[in-house]
Design a protein around this nucleic acid. Structure first.
Length: 276
DNA sequence: CACTTGACCTGTCCGC
DNA sequence: TGCGGACAGGTCAAGT
């Protein structure tokens, strides 16, 4: 995305599901049509496309959203090299289509319709409720072990998995990387935050950063249909130690991985390695 | 206030 | 094969 979009000029934005582009209206076109893409950024799980109009498209993929970019012509239909992963576009999951002056298109596809594309003045983005409350980026250089522990201790009476998933504590950790990092740190997901020693939270800090870096290197976790902007799948799940591995042997101790429900989410643990 | 649960949606899978 | 229910990568609002 960051390589594909800059300098492209938007000529049209259409949406097939109102909630996927909730502030779409004719007067928003004034800030979008004819605008040039200046930059593509990310904060937490949100993507920002900054435009020359000083407005930004703010995009959240939620569970099943995906952004797929295609050049003009044959790329929209049969014969595209990515057809085995995702076929002709738009398709029945296409919610928003952004067209550019070179006739390329960016498709926002989202089977479950939880994701969205919103438009805000670029200077207002930091004032969106979500961005005011969201926690620090766990991979940033300034984010230390001590910061990590201190952030968690704001939620002393909840379990560590709920705290890991809480975007106001730490940004960007979802269900997969929560399970994976807890396994790495040998912490049971139901452990109360207040009961975790500094040694444990330090270990979790290291494991979380390891897991996130590995996931980035592998192109993320394509659960089923997910593809990136170039139509490619990520491969992290083939490296996962516990996530979606119920009944398979723990890579450390061979004990069968179990699946339970913690913080309302499917949760995978090794019952021997992660006792507390 | 801190914390948990249900709602938002479509599609798939599993048991009857 | 059909049908009901549970579940799926995330976040809010409403509930306790």
């Amino acid at each position: 995305m960051a390589q594909l979009l800059p300098d492209k000029i938007i000529t049209r934005v259409t949406n097939d599901w109102a909630k996927s582009y909730p502030n779409a209206q004719t007067d928003t076109d004034a800030y979008v049509i004819g605008a040039k893409v200046i930059d593509v950024r990310r904060r937490a799980k949100v993507l920002l496309i900054d435009l020359s109009s000083e407005y930004s498209l703010v995009i959240h993929l939620k569970m099943t959203g995906q952004l797929v970019y295609r050049g003009a012509g044959v790329a929209f239909g049969a014969g595209h090299p990515n057809d085995s992963l995702i076929g002709k576009l738009p398709d029945k999951s296409t919610r928003v289509t952004i067209e550019y002056s070179d006739n390329s298109k960016l498709f926002f596809n989202d089977q479950r319709k939880f994701g969205w594309v919103k438009l805000y003045p670029t200077t207002e983005v930091p004032n969106i409720d979500f961005f005011k409350k969201v926690g620090p980026e766990p991979l940033s250089d300034e984010f230390t072990q001590a910061d990590f522990r201190q952030r968690f201790l704001r939620r002393p009476n909840t379990n560590i998995k709920a705290a890991l998933l809480d975007q106001t504590v730490i940004a960007g950790v979802g269900n997969i990387y929560a399970d994976e990092s807890l396994w790495g740190a040998k912490i049971h997901p139901t452990s109360l935050v207040r009961d975790l020693s500094a040694a444990k939270t330090n270990k979790l800090y290291k494991e979380l950063r390891y897991v996130l870096n590995l996931a980035i290197e592998k192109g993320g976790s394509s659960d089923r249909n997910y593809v990136n902007a170039e139509g490619k799948k990520g491969s992290y799940l083939s490296f996962a130690r516990v996530f979606r591995r119920e009944g398979q042997p723990c890579p450390r101790c061979e004990t069968a991985i179990v699946k339970t429900r913690v913080a309302g989410r499917g949760t995978h643990t090794c019952p021997k390695c992660q006792k507390s």
